[in-house]
């Protein structure tokens, strides 16, 4: 049985990220799990940026007891390849598309995805662009340092 994650505050996970587990074999899972689903090895705690894309989804019209119809459920893939089921918000159903970027939020151990507004997507683009620039600069710096070594 996999441990249900607590709320983000309880789990000590920074905002904008979700708790996950990482195995020495490279497998990452969310929600966190004590054992690797691929090799059975122990997993260490990790966090992942809470942004992903819709791999596929359904709107369930005959949900089981305890759930209201229509119930949107998506399989979401985070940057880095981790996949999990997520609940959607019924009022956003018209905006669902395969490949659409979504923001993830964990509430009481259940993941919810929200389609992102144009403004949120631009902000994300700039943040990623900033990260990419920083990476290029650091590579250039190390190349430069190496080239100056005697």
């Amino acid at each position: 049985m996999e441990e249900a994650p607590k709320t983000q505050e309880e789990a000590g996970t920074p905002a904008g990220s979700i708790p996950a587990s990482r195995c020495a074999c490279g497998t990452v899972t969310a929600p966190p799990a004590p054992h690797c689903p691929e090799c059975g090895g122990p997993m260490a705690p990790d966090t992942l940026p809470a942004v992903g894309e819709i791999l596929s989804y359904t709107i369930l019209h005959s949900p089981p007891a305890g759930f209201a119809a229509p119930l949107p459920i998506a399989l979401v893939e985070l940057v880095g390849g981790v996949k999990f089921l997520c609940h959607g918000h019924a009022e956003q159903v018209g905006r669902y598309r395969i490949g659409r970027q979504v923001a993830i939020e964990a509430v009481d151990g259940i993941y919810y995805f929200s389609t992102m507004t144009l403004r949120e997507r631009i902000a994300l683009f700039w943040r990623r662009r900033g990260e990419a620039e920083e990476k290029v600069r650091s590579v250039l710096r190390s190349v430069f340092r190496r080239s100056r070594r005697p």
């Binding site: 596929s56 989804y57 359904t58 369930l60 005959s62 949900p63 089981p64 305890g66 759930f67 119930l71 459920i73 998506a74 399989l75 089921l85 997520c86 609940h87 259940i110």
Partner: peptide, 11 residues
């Protein structure tokens, strides 16, 4: 998440 067999098959 309320996933049923038809829900996963639909995905």
């Amino acid at each position: 998440y309320g996933a049923t067999m038809p829900a996963l098959a639909a995905i």
